[in-house]
């Protein structure tokens, strides 16, 4: 059964101010001993998150840039390990993040369907059974014979969405990419996600598109500076967020 639980979850990591270190600096710093901490900056993108999402919920995440929305999705998908706290996931996950991720831009659309499918755990047999459906959903036709480097962002999102949802995952995670697709595609994507909800799914969606969040989501999390500021029914939280944005602009 699809279920996501975060208990007192925080994420922090250190970033070196001057970029990556070389062996020479590393050895010199090692000999010097003290004074190295000044070179590092600790980032805390998520702080004390308590969250429980269960089967059938469609959760949207909104917030300003840098609020921790995308990081939250990466922790959900298991890409970032939590520094403190507990993350429990039950169910198969499929995700669609930044469009540059998980694709080989020199390879054709057909080849990328296979690579991405294999990355999601498909076998040659299972992917062959789905490949025509995936291709049909993308509506890319003969463009699938071309390397991805010639695709527009909208075409890549069609391909990525079609592959990521082809497995009918129990948990589907989408970052702010759907808006790259045209109106017809967005409608199609919403239909596909609605269909997924029929089969005991759970969708978590990050977006700046309030109408998409309002239409599709039942629950919305408002993230601010790494914390959940509000968590409640979609329409209510969206209205609060928009109101605060208006007040900030007015000020």
């Amino acid at each position: 059964m699809a279920q996501i639980t975060f208990e007192d979850l925080s994420l922090s990591f250190r970033v070196r101010k001057g970029g990556k270190i070389g062996w020479k600096d590393f050895i010199v710093q090692g000999l010097r001993g003290k004074g190295q901490d000044d070179d590092w900056l600790t980032v805390n993108p998520l702080r004390n998150i308590n969250l429980s999402i269960t089967r059938g919920e469609r959760v949207g995440i909104l917030g300003n840039n840098g609020a921790g929305k995308s990081t939250m999705l990466k922790v959900l998908a298991g890409i970032y390990p939590p520094t403190v706290g507990k993350r429990t996931i039950e169910g198969t996950i499929s995700s669609l993040f930044d469009l540059s991720l998980g694709f080989e831009y020199d390879a054709t659309g057909w080849e990328n369907i296979r690579y991405r499918g294999f990355l999601q755990g498909e076998t040659p047999k299972s992917i062959e059974a789905k490949i025509d459906d995936i291709a049909e959903f993308t509506e890319l036709g003969e463009f699938l014979d071309m390397p991805l480097r010639y695709y527009s962002a909208g075409m890549v999102v069609r391909l990525g969405f079609a592959i990521a949802t082809s497995a009918m995952p129990e948990i589907f995670i989408v970052d702010e990419v759907l808006s790259a697709g045209d109106a017809a595609f967005q409608e199609k994507a919403k239909k596909r996600m609605n269909k997924m909800m029929d089969t005991a799914s759970l969708v978590v969606l990050v977006s700046h598109d309030m109408s998409l969040l309002g239409e599709f989501c039942t629950r919305v999390l408002w993230m601010d500076k790494g914390r959940i500021k509000e968590d409640g029914p979609a329409k209510k939280v969206i209205a609060q967020y928009l109101e605060e944005s208006r007040q900030q602009q007015a000020a």
Binding site: K74, A77, G78, I79, S95, F97, D98, S100, L101, G102, F103, L119, Q120
Partner: peptide, 9 residues
Amino acid sequence: QAYLRQNPA
């Protein structure tokens, strides 16, 4: 890294 950032393999 495009795969590392997409999947915890």
